[in-house]
Design a protein around this nucleic acid. Sequence first.
RNA 1: GGGGGCGUAGUUCAGUUGGUUAGAACGCCGGCCUGUCACGUCGGAGGUCGCGAGUUCAAGUCUCGUCGCUCCCGCCA
Length: 597
Amino acid sequence: MEGWKRTHHLGELRIEDNEKTVTLMGWVHRRRDHGGLVFLDLRDREGITQVVFYPDLSNEAHELAHQVRSEFVVALKGIVTPRPEETANKDLATGEIEVRATDLKILSRAKTTPFQIADESEVGEDLRLRYRYLDLRRPELQDNLRVRHAATSSIRRFLDGEGFWDIETPVLTRSTPEGARDFLVPSRLSSGEFYALPQSPQLFKQLLMVSGIDRYYQIVKCFRDEDLRADRQPEFTQVDLEMSFVEQDDIIEIMERMVSTLFAEVKGSSLVTPFPRITYADAMARYGCDAPDTRFGLELADVTEGMAGSDFKVFAKVASSGGAVKGINAKTAGEKLSRKEIDDLAGFVAPFGAKGLAWIRIQPDGEWQSPIAKFLGDEARKAIVEALAPAPGDILFFVADTLSVTNFALSKLRVHLAKRLGLVDDSVWSFCWVTDFPLVEWDEEEKRYFALHHPFTSPRAEDLNLLKEDPSRVLATAYDLVLNGTEVGGGSIRIHDSEVQQKVFEMLGIEEEEAMEKFGFLLEGLSFGAPPHGGIAFGLDRLCMFLTGTSAIRDVIAFPKTQRGTCLMTDAPSKVDEKQLRELGIRLRQSAKQGGN
RNA sequence: GGGGGCGUAGUUCAGUUGGUUAGAACGCCGGCCUGUCACGUCGGAGGUCGCGAGUUCAAGUCUCGUCGCUCCCGCCA
């Protein structure tokens, strides 16, 4: 750059800078070449500034400006000038001025880009991922990264102020049973053995509490080798923290302040605290899921009891055999949904296991229009009226199945209907805490209990005696933070007593020997004087999705993976040299050699 | 592992019932143009219709397989 120093960013100059001599650098956003007069819109991450080249101001610069093309990187010197009457551009922050160029340098030429940067049109995702660095030049993604930076920096500032220490934990650690599939890393020095990438720093942060660190946090990558979704990547980022000498309410209180500060600083929104709390049992009963969208009603109501004696055999059979019949009242949907749409909703719930979807449309005269109306006796009608309070214009929907299928199908239908009926206010942040989760869940296939949260979650003190006799009734001191129907964080008070920890392992069917081999270091740590402690982890990517208003997690990650877990830019994962494998003591199976591309 | 959507010029798309030389816009290249800001204007280049088979006199179009991107179920907190 031959000693040239940039004096201003490209979103910076205003009318007050009139007559200043400036040096600007950036990418050519657009060029408008009038022959005798050339305009360049110069772009950097801060904005766009218009530059004009006059032949009589500098013939040399004007000549060179003809050669410039989109996405060239240029440097120029010039004089800030107010734009002539009527030519100001209200769409640009710098639109009242322009820079009259006296000197131009082309710092870097650019080939024609595979897609236009200075153009908002949608481009195929595969092409954008292949040339991710070009996609990141576009304002939309660049703004997302800006928001993500603002978020992490707000969170760090807040936690620092509350006395949390940022401490790094290992990325190469050991594989643990339970939870998601691990990413494995072969060890060269211990041939035949493997590290695992952490699914979260859970055990390390607990041991940091044992060390007396008192308050720890980390914004940290976590890895889970499971299939991807619109909101799931194999490597993702958690805001992970842990505190000593606290109870559930202490953690909830401080996290409400952290989240409020975050939304205030990044979005300028002021959240109302404390956030509402709902127990897991209530959430399942009223919303059918443990992460309810509380921006709208459409709550589920249970009508199982009134259906046992019904003439509608599907309901009666389910009701009398331990299943559940639940319904939703879609208030005033009668005018909005056509008969075909109503029938199509059965197809909507089918993938969630529901074998059918019954409905009743309440006519203006109060008549029940429904394929099942004639099977509903007085008792069934009474149960429905009491549970759902139908009024003319409403449509009632029912699913009858096992409790879990009924809840799952209706929870999905609830959200679907709310969107269709325009009940979802996208400008609202509706947070709630879900508490009192069951400690464990019975797995029918493996015939054993699994920890709902993770195996280090403390049972509620009053439930300790239930551990042996009826584990399924034990509630955990675990809590999730839910925002608009998405879980954005979750944590628990941990077991700080190695004996209780051992009992929980036992109940989970983890043999003592196995527990010692895989978690011995934790049990041992807890035995040397562990403070009561607990913590929480937030999904930073998901939080950023809300802060940016995007629906794809890829949009808040600089270099994301495709749904198949590949990176189209680097072409990872890739084959490796035979020599590398030999050093690791690895030989590929025939099927693995043929796989890949 | 299963189901859905998409794949045609550099990009975004159109392409009739299977019919002759596959189009548009933007971009790109060249000419003209001193107040543009999606500059204008005149001209030009640019196609393995994702890939491979099959049906047919004839396939962008129909069938089967396969690859890629994406959404969902399973999986995953």
